[in-house]
Design a protein around this nucleic acid. Structure first.
Lengths: 137, 137
DNA sequence: TCTGGTCCATTGCGAAGTGCAAGTGAAAAT
DNA sequence: ATTTTCACTTGCACTTCGCAATGGACCAGA
């Protein structure tokens, strides 16, 4: 998608150089909110990412230090992907983007589980703390 | 860059379908934080967006309802771009991305004006309110 | 062990998007 | 009237994209 060099000293440009595309943040979403950990789980998301693009994004996110990749001890074919602290640090940004989308999507769009939406709307920081607990104990 | 159809009902995917690329949010940044309003001002940003891409992004953002375009009353050649309420609504997400980038950029990177950084770190909501005031009075 | 299936990743290909340079037309500016 | 400015388009080479097919490593059952 994007060359890894940074275009300026702007922290936003820096961030977009790492995950400024249509797929990277969806992979992060699956990790943070859905708890997915395997290639096939990401590939099964409703957006339908192509496997070559998914492979590329996982590689880039790992190189950027946002996720970690380790062999699955239970199955030598598989790898398990997990969030690093830096990757989880994007959760507030993800939440804000989700809240924005919720308010601007066409009315009546199904959307994410209601309990998650309520948690984000009423107690964003609490919801983030709960997610952190889930990922790092 | 990206087809305007939405890939799923996820609010994040909805958002990324509108501005999930390396340039759109930089244009928004220039509008929200720098106060730029003209084509040539966006084109002069340090990231060096190509004029055809800038033209395309402004068009997309306008179609998505994030920005408004009107002829400059002072100069018939020019257009003035401004934020809509929906566009300004992305400010919290922009702030979170900027804060993330500030913490992960290579140490010693110059970055944005110190007063803005301090405002974002110490009183994010207050800084956003001040920006809203600037844009909508 | 052999066979078939699962899993992550790669390859090939046409289509779309990207960056760069040059050019357009309308409207200032001189 | 001529030149310059401005927003925007065009042309071109290059890259990335989505899709389908394929590959190799590994697991499971007969």
């Amino acid at each position: 998608m994007t060359p890894p060099e940074c275009r300026s000293n702007c922290p936003l440009a820096f961030a977009l150089d790492l995950f400024g595309d249509r797929w990277s943040l969806l992979v992060l979403r699956d990790l943070v909110f859905v708890g997915k950990r395997r290639f096939s789980e990401f590939a099964a998301s409703p957006e339908g990412i192509a496997t070559n693009v998914l492979s590329d994004r996982l590689k880039r996110l790992e190189e950027a230090g946002l996720i970690r990749r380790e062999p699955d001890p239970d199955d030598g074919r598989r790898f398990l992907y997990s969030l690093t602290e830096a990757g989880f640090g994007l959760t507030p940004a993800l939440c804000e983007l989700i809240l924005w989308g919720l308010d601007r999507q066409p009315p009546g769009t199904p959307g994410p589980p209601a309990h998650l939406v309520e948690a984000l709307r009423n107690d964003r920081d609490g919801a983030i703390a709960a997610l952190r607990q889930k990922h790092f104990g």
